[in-house]
């Protein structure tokens, strides 16, 4: 939650564990350089007009909590970017082939707020596309609430040029028997930070957080996620996979937190990285904080090069080294897409 003290939050420093290995000072300076008045950008959707409002509802649900980034959250709120509140009542909203679209385009600097609610019994497939003008910065505050028995399938695609920066501060809240899955991909940006706080607030809630990325050049990808089990009998999964080339750097900070009383929680967190360059670097911080018993919680993290035997297998069939590497990288990330696309209700 954002710090409510009278003193405004400061730029995260090296003592902020939620920014460990990150570059908050540099991002703050980049933002300041691009901030120009209210900022420019566009936030649109093809959701039916009766479901869309241009102002946010009152209450805490509209503003996502940050993961150690209250400074950026406050700067975004102060910039007064556009807001979009979408409420989807019972029914089917979008399909895999024709998803309901939300488009966000950043000019030099843009800080929009998005709040989406799936009312009980609704099912939605949403594609959120973030695009950038060259050399732009985006700070997007995203909040999704999935009410009881609703189902959300959400894809976030962040694309920009190699001078753009993006930060998404997101929350996905799952109420009783609600199901949500999110897939994020980020390509082309110089620096991106993606924060997702998943909250499981009711028994039978299910959350699946997925991410697949191929950072290259000098890109920095900073990913943080939280699986907060507030209620007993909920289930969450997170799988973040990256294929790193050139001098790319990935940071992953994940946390499974099972609050007191959230017994029978079932949670798993995984961060897997395929290293394709001697210059690439990975920093992985998968965490568990368990304050209830009768739970099933675990995490895993692995960073490794391509298995030489797999490479040999493909090369011995006449495939060149670069193509063989590309095939194996595709195969490595394929699991994420499989999980995202599998029918709702199947247990990953």
């Amino acid at each position: 939650m954002m710090n409510n003290d009278a003193t405004p939050p400061e730029v995260p420093n090296r003592l902020n564990e939620d920014w460990r290995y990150g570059r908050p000072q540099q991002f703050a300076a980049d933002l300041a350089a691009r901030m120009n008045g209210r900022g420019t950008g566009e936030l649109t959707t093809d959701a039916p007009a009766e479901c869309v409002r241009r102002s946010l509802p009152e209450g805490a649900d509209a503003c996502p909590p940050s993961i150690g980034s209250d400074y950026f959250l406050r700067r975004a709120l102060q910039s007064g970017g556009d807001a979009l509140h979408i409420v989807l009542p019972r029914g089917e909203w979008g399909t895999a082939e024709a998803p309901l679209r939300i488009r966000c385009h950043a000019g030099s600097f843009y800080a929009p707020q998005l709040c989406v609610e799936l009312l009980p019994g609704s099912r939605a497939h949403i594609l959120e596309e973030h695009t950038h003008d060259p050399d732009s910065a985006l700070v997007c505050l995203r909040s999704y609430t999935v009410h009881p028995d609703a189902e959300l399938r959400l894809e976030l695609r962040e694309t920009g040029d190699d001078a753009s920066r993006a930060m998404n501060i997101s929350r996905i809240q799952c109420r009783e028997n609600a199901r949500a899955r999110q897939l994020t991909t980020c390509s082309g940006l110089a620096w991106a930070r993606e924060e997702t706080t998943g909250e499981l607030c009711g028994a039978g809630a299910e959350l699946l957080l997925l991410s697949a990325n191929r950072p290259e050049g000098c890109q920095w990808l900073d990913q943080r996620c939280r699986q907060l089990h507030h209620a007993a009998g909920a289930r969450s999964r997170a799988l973040y996979k990256n294929v790193l080339r050139d001098a790319a750097t990935c940071i992953f900070g994940g946390n499974i937190r099972v609050e007191p009383g959230a017994h029978e929680s079932d949670a798993y967190l995984s961060n897997l990285n395929l290293m394709l360059s001697a210059e690439a670097a990975v920093h992985s911080l998968p965490q568990l904080e368990i304050m209830a018993d009768r739970v099933r919680c675990s995490h895993g993290s692995a960073s490794a090069p391509i298995d030489p035997e797999q490479l040999f297998y493909l090369r011995s069939r006449g495939i060149g080294e670069a193509d063989a590497q590309a095939i194996l990288a595709d195969a490595f990330l394929h699991e994420v897409y499989l999980l995202f696309n599998q029918p709702q209700g199947t247990q990953p």
Binding site: R20, Y21, N273, M275, L276, S277, A278, E279, A280, A281, V282, H283, S284, L285, P286, Q287, L288, E289, I290, M291, V295, R296, C297, S298, H299, G300, S301, A302, S303, A304, P305
Partner: peptide, 23 residues
């Protein structure tokens, strides 16, 4: 209560690092 706070940093494409934790 139990917690796990690992920090893993890997440079380059020739090393393999694996971490697993369970409760």
């Amino acid at each position: 209560r139990t917690d796990t706070y690992p920090a893993i940093s890997v440079h380059g494409d020739s090393s393999g690092v694996q971490h697993e934790a369970s409760v």
